[in-house]
């Protein structure tokens, strides 16, 4: 059972403007990229569950040349709003690390 943390050398998250979050998963090599970049476990349902986002708006972009996949989703609460806990979304990737991929 491989988790995101097992097969990625770097996972990072950041706001992409005030309304979107983007997570970059750099796999540990082309083999992991081929095996997991399109994984169901990295699909919209997981992002809806972990981040409360609208699954219909989740976007996934595999970048083969970098063996990475970028996944972007709209924030579920406004940046800097009443219940803000991570203004720049730089900590959001952590919740993804334990997701099981197969």
């Amino acid at each position: 059972m491989a988790t995101v943390n097992d097969v990625c050398r770097l996972v990072r998250s950041k706001n992409a403007g005030p309304f979107w979050v983007t997570i970059d998963l750099f796999f540990d090599g082309p083999e992991s990229f081929r095996r997991y970049a399109q994984s169901e476990a990295l699909g919209p349902a997981t992002f809806a569950r972990l981040y409360g986002t609208d699954p219909a708006l989740v976007k996934r972009f595999p970048v083969e040349s970098l063996s990475m996949v970028k996944i972007s989703y709209p924030r579920s609460s406004s940046q800097g709003g009443m219940v803000e806990r991570d203004l720049h979304c730089g900590q959001q990737f952590v919740r993804l690390l334990d997701v099981e991929l197969d």
């Binding site: 950041k14 983007t22 970059d24 976007k59 972009f61 970048v63 970098l66 970028k70 972007s72």
Partner: peptide, 10 residues
């Protein structure tokens, strides 16, 4: 890799 940074589309 910088083209990825803070962009929702790479």
């Amino acid at each position: 890799a910088h083209m990825l940074y803070e962009n929702s589309d790479p």
